[in-house]
Lab assay of single mutants.
Amino acid sequence: ERVRARYDYEAQNEDELSFKKGDIITVLEKDDGWWKGRNGKEGLFPSNYVEELE
């Protein structure tokens, strides 16, 4: 599954994923509120910062 970033997100910890608004992220795992994904790097990000691609 792929999602698009709705906002910029700056990683707060080294296991998190940074991205810019409009970036496409491949979702690897979904957990409550935090998803694991890849966009060149791999890490956790808040699920409310992304939207599913149509």
Rank of each mutant, 00 (worst) to 15 (best):
Glu29Tyr: 09
Trp34Asn: 05
Val27Gly: 02
Leu17Ile: 12
Val50Pro: 02
Asp32Cys: 10
Arg38Glu: 12
Glu54Val: 13
Glu29Ile: 10
Glu42Arg: 05
Asn39Tyr: 13
Glu52Arg: 12
Ala5Arg: 01
Arg2Pro: 04
Leu28Pro: 02
Glu52Phe: 12
Phe19Glu: 03
Asp32Asn: 15
Phe45Tyr: 00
Gly40Met: 09
Asp23Thr: 08
Asn39Val: 11
Glu14Val: 10
Asn48Phe: 12
Glu51Tyr: 03
Asp23Phe: 04
Pro46Tyr: 04
Val50Leu: 03
Asp31Met: 15
Arg38Gly: 08
Leu44Lys: 13
Leu44Pro: 01
Glu29His: 14
Ala5Glu: 05
Phe19Met: 08
Gly37Gln: 00
Asp8Gln: 03
Val27Asp: 03
Tyr49Val: 08
Lys41Ala: 10
Leu17Phe: 02
Trp35Tyr: 09
Arg6Thr: 09
Ala11Thr: 04
Phe45Ala: 01
Glu54Met: 12
Val3Pro: 02
Val50Lys: 00
Gly37Tyr: 00
Glu29Trp: 14
Gly37Asp: 05
Asn39Ala: 14
Gly37Trp: 00
Glu51Ala: 04
Asp15Cys: 13
Glu1Asn: 15
Thr26Met: 11
Gly40Pro: 04
Val3Asn: 04
Ile24Ala: 02
Tyr9Met: 02
Tyr7Val: 11
Lys30Glu: 04
Trp35Arg: 02
Leu28Phe: 08
Val27Glu: 00
Glu1Pro: 13
Arg4His: 05
Asn48Leu: 08
Lys36Gly: 04
Glu1Ser: 14
Val3Gln: 03
Arg4Gln: 08
Ser47Met: 12
Asn39Asp: 07
Ile25Phe: 07
Asn13Tyr: 08
Glu1Met: 15
Leu44His: 11
Val27Lys: 01
Trp34Ser: 06
Val27Thr: 03
Asp23Ser: 07
Ser47Cys: 13
Gly43Glu: 02
Ser47Trp: 07
Glu52Ala: 15
Arg38Trp: 15
Glu16Phe: 05
Asn48Gly: 12
Phe19Cys: 04
Asp8Thr: 05
Trp34Val: 04
Ile25Cys: 03
Asn39Phe: 15
Lys21Ser: 09
Glu29Leu: 11
Ser47Val: 10
Lys21Trp: 05
Trp34Glu: 05
Phe19Asn: 03
Gly43His: 01
Glu54Leu: 12
Asn39Met: 15
Asn48Pro: 06
Gly40Leu: 10
Arg4Cys: 09
Phe45Leu: 04
Tyr7Asn: 09
Gly22Pro: 01
Ile25Lys: 02
Lys20His: 11
Ser47Pro: 14
Lys30Trp: 07
Ser18Tyr: 01
Arg4Trp: 00
Thr26Val: 14
Trp35Cys: 07
Ala11Asn: 02
Glu14Thr: 10
Glu16Asp: 04
Asp23Arg: 00
Asp32Glu: 14
Leu53Val: 11
Gly40Val: 13
Val27Ala: 04
Lys41Cys: 08
Glu16Arg: 00
Thr26Trp: 08
Leu28Cys: 08
Ile25Arg: 01
Ser47Ala: 14
Glu10Arg: 05
Asn48Tyr: 13
Gln12Val: 10
Asp31Lys: 15
Glu29Met: 12
Asn39Cys: 13
Gln12Thr: 13
Asp31Gly: 15
Gln12Met: 12
Tyr49Trp: 08
Tyr49Arg: 08
Lys30Phe: 07
Arg6Asn: 08
Ala11Gly: 11
Asn13His: 12
Glu10Ile: 12
Ala5Met: 03
Trp34Asp: 05
Ala5Leu: 01
Arg4Pro: 01
Ile25Trp: 00
Asn48Ile: 12
Gly22Asn: 08
Asp8Cys: 07
Asp32Gly: 15
Ile24Leu: 10
Glu42Val: 15
Asp15Ser: 12
Glu51Cys: 08
Asp15Lys: 11
Trp35Leu: 08
Tyr7Gln: 13
Glu16Asn: 04
Val3Lys: 05
Gly37Ile: 00
Arg4Asp: 04
Val50Ala: 07
Tyr49Asp: 03
Val27Leu: 09
Tyr7Arg: 14
Ala11Val: 02
Gly22Glu: 03
Ala11Phe: 03
Leu28Gln: 05
Glu52Cys: 11
Lys21Asp: 05
Tyr49Gln: 07
Glu42Ser: 10
Trp35His: 05
Arg2Trp: 06
Gly43Ser: 01
Arg2Ser: 09
Glu14Met: 09
Tyr9Leu: 00
Glu16Thr: 00
Arg38Thr: 14
Gly33Cys: 14
Glu54Pro: 13
Gly33Val: 13
Lys21Pro: 03
Gly22Gln: 03
Asn48Asp: 14
Thr26Gly: 06
Pro46Met: 07
Tyr7Ala: 14
Leu28Met: 13
Lys21Ala: 14
Ser47Arg: 10
Asp23Val: 03
Lys41Trp: 08
Asp15Ile: 09
Gly40Asp: 12
Lys30Arg: 11
